[in-house]
């Protein structure tokens, strides 16, 4: 049977619904944000004239030392939290891949932290860290590790790491699940052969298992990194950027410029900067992935 339209047209016809939705929910707002970022637009209920001001917003943002500091902090948050999630996630996946009683139950339970809404998770951890009656203080005190109750989220030197801990607890199950799925594709005969040849567990993991699961892992690393770089909710609930801005991430500046200071133009330029850095991160990972595949 002969098609009424050519293969090329058919392809576009089939793609059209998806493209339309994508254009409406993603492309239009993006172009609008991009335009705003070059304007002096402000949130106001009065009629205002919006004018094009070129790169002024970007210059303002990038010459603000506090914002530059926040970019560094956000990168720190991203690398440490995603790094810890990957190590913990893979380790847990390896355990869950073993044969033991109650494995199915454990596999189901491990997803719980990830299923909890971020806001609930953040509030829970804030209670755990509470300087007066928090569970962490009580635990460390009883173990004899600390002599007196500590103010975990009030100490500028440790606050960020405490937020990262809460974030890792919530997000490592996602990495564990992806890793677990990937682990089930590792060929057993290859591992058995290596064992017969005398390769120890470390060697088998780094030479066979890891290269085998690195593809899916990279995908989840990219997803988590982009998510982590625009982190806002967990910090808004746990510390609001304090103490002394030590947990104030780049997204916080977007929120602040836009909704606190009502400068939609300037706020948009902060948003575009955050988006650009996320894109650079993604490209970095893809390059790494390509190199990895080449060496295989």
């Amino acid at each position: 049977m002969r098609s009424l339209i050519g293969a090329k047209q058919q392809k576009w016809l089939l793609l059209a619904p998806a493209l339309t939705v994508l254009a409406l929910i993603s492309f239009v707002p993006f172009v609008q944000t991009l335009w705003l970022s070059f304007s002096d637009s402000e949130i106001s209920a009065l009629p205002t004239v919006v004018s094009f001001i070129g790169l002024e917003n970007y210059i303002y943002a990038l010459t603000d030392p506090d914002f530059i500091d926040s970019l560094g902090r956000t990168l720190y948050f991203t690398f440490v939290s995603v790094g810890a999630e990957v190590i913990l996630g893979v380790a847990v996946a390896l355990l869950l891949n073993q044969q033991f009683k109650g494995r199915t139950l454990m596999r189901a339970l491990i997803i719980l932290p990830w299923a909890i809404p971020t806001i609930v998770n953040a509030v829970t951890w804030r209670l755990i860290y509470n300087p007066e009656y928090g569970a962490l203080n009580s635990l460390l005190m009883q173990l004899g590790i600390i002599g007196e109750y500590q103010s975990w989220l009030g100490n500028p030197d440790v606050a960020m790491n405490m937020v990262i801990l809460a974030d890792v607890w919530k997000n490592f199950p996602l990495v564990a699940y992806v890793a677990l799925a990937a682990l089930q594709t590792v060929p057993m005969d290859m591992l058995n052969a290596a064992r017969l040849e005398g390769a120890n567990a470390w060697r088998r993991f780094f030479k066979i298992t890891l290269p085998w699961i690195i593809g899916p892992l990279l995908v989840i690393i990219v997803l988590r990194s982009v998510e982590a770089f625009r982190v806002f909710d967990i910090i808004y609930v746990m510390t609001r950027g304090g103490p002394a801005n030590q947990t104030k991430t780049a997204s916080f500046y977007v929120y602040q410029e836009y909704f606190s200071y009502l400068r939609s133009g300037s706020g948009s330029s902060y948003a575009i900067i955050v988006a650009l850095i996320s894109i650079i991160l993604i490209f970095g990972y893809y390059k790494a992935a390509k190199r990895q595949n080449g060496s295989l």
């Binding site: 506090d66 100490n155 500028p156 304090g242 103490p243 002394a244 801005n245 602040q256 606190s260 200071y261």
Partner: peptide, 21 residues
Amino acid sequence: KSYAEISDILQLRIHEVLLGK
């Protein structure tokens, strides 16, 4: 008009002092 911003700036610097930084 820009009170919110002034307050944020003061909050940061005052907090720095209170934290001994």
